[in-house]
Computed example of a mutant assay.
Amino acid sequence: MSGKLTTHVLNTAAGHPAAGMRITLSRFDDETEAFREIETFATNEDGRIHSPLLEDTAFKAAQYELLFHVGEYYRNEQDQPEDSLFLDQVPVRFTVNDSEAHYHVPLLVTPYGYTTYRGS
Rank of each mutant, 00 (worst) to 15 (best):
E45S: 07
D98K: 14
L10F: 13
R93I: 14
Q80S: 07
L108F: 08
D29T: 13
F94A: 00
E37T: 13
T7V: 06
D88A: 07
T115I: 12
F28D: 02
P91M: 06
Y74K: 02
D83Y: 06
N97F: 15
P111L: 04
L5G: 05
A13E: 12
Y64R: 06
V70W: 04
L67Q: 07
Y64P: 03
T115H: 09
H8T: 11
P52F: 05
F28H: 10
H104L: 09
N97Y: 15
D46N: 15
A34M: 09
T57S: 12
V70P: 01
T116Q: 03
E82L: 13
R22C: 05
E33V: 15
S120A: 09
E82Y: 07
K4L: 11
D79Y: 12
F68M: 07
P111E: 00
N44D: 15
E72V: 09
Q89C: 13
G119P: 03
T57V: 13
L5I: 13
E100I: 09
H102Q: 08
Q80K: 06
I38L: 15
H50Q: 10
L10Q: 09
L25K: 07
F41K: 07
R75H: 08
E33G: 11
S84N: 09
G119V: 04
A13T: 05
N97L: 13
V92G: 02
E39I: 10
S99W: 02
G113E: 12
Y73K: 04
A62W: 00
E82N: 10
V9A: 05
